[in-house]
Amino acid sequence: MSEYRCPECGYTYNEQSGDEFEGFSPGTAFVDLPADFVCPDCSVRSKDEFERVS
């Protein structure tokens, strides 16, 4: 289980906890997020721009 961070605003997606508000259940792998996923907080950075932090 890894964490991925938006380099613009610091939003972090944690695969273990998912993102309840966005409807990504715990355990959802980052790679399984929709292809058109953009940062839910800033909408500036797309999925492939997220940085793996752990």
Partner: peptide
């Protein structure tokens, strides 16, 4: 609001 260029590049 009118400093809109920076706002869109860095919305937060």
């Amino acid at each position: 609001l009118e400093r809109h260029s920076d706002h869109h590049a860095h919305p937060l």
